[in-house]
Amino acid sequence: MRNQPKYNFFKNTTYALKGLKDLLKTESSFKIELLIVILLIPIIIFIDTTITNKLIMFITLMLMPLMEALNSAIERVVDLVTLKHHDMAGRAKDAGSTAVFFSIVIFVVSWSTILFNL
């Protein structure tokens, strides 16, 4: 049996906003990436390129804070299970960090390709 309440769109939105608030309060990397998102959204809006390129730019930009949020979730669950150093705990955290790293690489490569080919 799952420990999960019945689905409710408004309640689930509340949970999401609660998570966002917590990430903004406690995760400096997330705050930095969200600032990057806020600063770069106008570029997507005003740049003279195809709608497909704009969509790629938006998706790859949003991928960074998404991966950071997932990485934070992994780190918190690992810390909940054990605060002692354990090889598997470290590997789980490293895998989350790798996802963040790849999202940044995807962002940089896609934006560079689009911006340098205008």
Rank of each mutant, 00 (worst) to 15 (best):
K18F: 04
K18S: 06
G19F: 08
G19R: 11
G19C: 06
G19D: 14
L20Q: 08
L20P: 01
L20D: 04
K21F: 13
D22P: 00
D22G: 04
L23V: 03
L23C: 10
L23W: 05
L24I: 05
L24E: 06
L24D: 00
K25G: 04
T26P: 03
T26Q: 12
E27T: 14
E27Y: 01
E27P: 00
E27K: 03
S28Q: 15
S29W: 05
S29T: 13
I32R: 13
I32N: 12
I32T: 14
E33R: 01
L34H: 05
L34C: 12
L34S: 11
L34F: 15
L35E: 15
L35A: 14
L35G: 12
I36G: 00
I36Q: 06
V37I: 08
V37P: 04
I38N: 07
I38E: 08
L39P: 01
L40R: 02
L40E: 10
L40T: 09
I41W: 01
P42T: 03
P42Y: 03
I43K: 09
I43Q: 08
I43N: 10
I43D: 06
I44K: 05
I44W: 08
F46S: 11
I47L: 11
D48L: 09
T49R: 10
T49C: 13
T50L: 07
I51A: 15
I51L: 15
I51W: 14
T52D: 10
T52Y: 15
N53H: 12
I56K: 12
I56T: 12
M57P: 01
F58C: 14
F58N: 03
F58T: 12
I59N: 10
I59H: 02
T60G: 08
T60A: 07
M62A: 11
M62W: 09
M62V: 06
M62Y: 07
L63W: 01
P65N: 02
L66K: 13
L66T: 11
L66F: 15
M67P: 00
M67K: 15
E68F: 01
E68D: 08
L70Y: 08
L70I: 11
N71L: 01
S72P: 00
A73T: 09
A73Y: 07
I74W: 00
I74M: 06
E75K: 04
E75Q: 10
E75G: 02
E75A: 09
E75L: 04
E75N: 12
V77A: 12
D79M: 10
D79W: 11
D79P: 01
L80H: 13
L80T: 11
V81W: 09
K84E: 15
K84G: 02
H85G: 07
H85P: 06
H86E: 14
H86N: 12
H86Y: 13
D87C: 05
M88V: 04
M88L: 13
A89I: 02
A89Q: 10
G90V: 00
G90R: 08
R91A: 11
D94Q: 01
D94G: 03
D94W: 00
A95D: 03
S97L: 06
S97N: 10
T98I: 09
T98Y: 11
V100H: 00
F101D: 06
F102T: 12
F102W: 14
S103E: 05
I104E: 06
V105T: 09
I106W: 05
I106L: 13
I106Y: 07
F107D: 02
V108L: 14
V109N: 05
S110G: 04
W111I: 15
W111K: 14
W111T: 13
T113G: 06
T113K: 12
I114V: 15
L115R: 06
L115S: 07
